[in-house]
């Protein structure tokens, strides 16, 4: 797989003596959908901005498709689509928005855009974006972003404001727009809606990457199952009481494959980081 983003020993801070990212390193490849998770204020949105060249690092290096993002080279920008959490306000109709911005993206596919809008149940392209609800506007922007066919798609909380059916549509559309050349980074808190979509989970904790593994590897090394309160099995890493019972994250000693519960994994990592990291580094070695 082609490496699209290489971040090495990155340092970034908004205010003096308050480092947000320190000695931060991360490699991201084409052909993957990365779920970027972390608590509030960990620097997830800032990381997306650093990759896009919207803020500049104070130390270290970032390479995005062979470009330094802070130079905002147009050839790099035409291969990145960044959808921020809060949307750009415009009174343009969808049709005029497409007329104004699609020409900047050489791989923009108008048919794909129309199909995606239909799938999102946006009936008329004559509708003014300022008159659409936040959710509908977000759908238009997601559809536009997918139709740009940029190599890098950065989505910050894309499912915020979407209703339940739209979240399922979003998953379908993103999956259908993926290919081996493309890399998607989805930063979100709504992890349940990423189930079955992302193939790599990247978790930020204390302003560093504390976990970055493929879903395939996670399945090989961990199981996510319901158990009992009285279970004392040493392979249990984390237990959480839910309405269904006691959800457990366990070391996968049997080779059995279970569905990855991202929320459970996140909570497990927050409470038992050392053990999980050790488990993955042991197996890596």
């Amino acid at each position: 797989m082609t490496k699209l983003i290489t971040i090495k020993d990155l340092n970034f801070q908004y205010a003096k003596n308050a480092p947000l990212l320190s000695n931060f390193s991360l490699d991201l490849e084409a052909g993957h959908i990365y779920g970027l998770l972390g608590k509030n204020g960990e620097g997830k949105s800032t990381l997306l901005k650093l990759i896009s060249g919207l803020v500049f690092a104070q130390g270290g290096s970032i390479d995005v498709m062979g470009f330094k993002p802070q130079l905002r080279h147009p050839n790099m920008l035409q291969d990145i689509y960044f959808l921020p959490e809060d949307l750009y306000q415009t009174s343009l109709s969808i049709e005029k928005y497409e007329q104004a911005y699609a020409p900047y993206y050489p791989h923009f596919n108008a048919n794909q855009f129309n199909q995606l809008l239909t799938e999102f149940e946006i009936d008329s392209k004559k509708a003014s974006l300022s008159k659409l609800s936040h959710g509908q506007k977000k759908k238009v922007m997601i559809a536009f972003g997918l139709a740009t066919n940029t190599k890098l798609l950065l989505l910050d909380e894309p499912t915020n404001g979407l209703d339940i059916p739209s979240k399922a549509q979003f998953r379908r559309m993103v999956a259908s727009a993926m290919n081996r050349e493309r890399c998607l980074i989805i930063s979100t808190h709504q992890v349940r809606y990423l189930d079955g979509l992302i193939d790599n989970i990247t978790i930020m904790d204390h302003h560093k990457i504390s976990f970055n593994e493929t879903v395939e590897d996670i399945k090989k090394k961990l199981t996510f199952k319901l158990g009992n309160r009285t279970d004392t099995d040493e392979s249990i890493i984390y237990t959480e009481e839910t309405i269904q019972g006691f959800c457990q994250v366990k070391e996968n000693l049997t080779g059995e494959e279970t569905k990855v519960d991202i929320e459970l994994l996140f909570n497990a990592l927050m409470t038992n980081k050392i053990r999980i990291q050790a488990l993955f580094s042991k197996h890596d070695n």
């Binding site: 905002r72 147009p74 920008l77 689509y81 921020p84 750009y88 306000q89 900047y104």
Partner: peptide, 18 residues
């Protein structure tokens, strides 16, 4: 003056000179 608009403007694929 509005962060999302600023992001939108800076992400337009054109050089600073343009």
């Amino acid at each position: 003056g509005h962060t999302p608009s600023g992001i939108h403007y800076l992400m337009i694929p054109a050089t600073q000179t343009e």
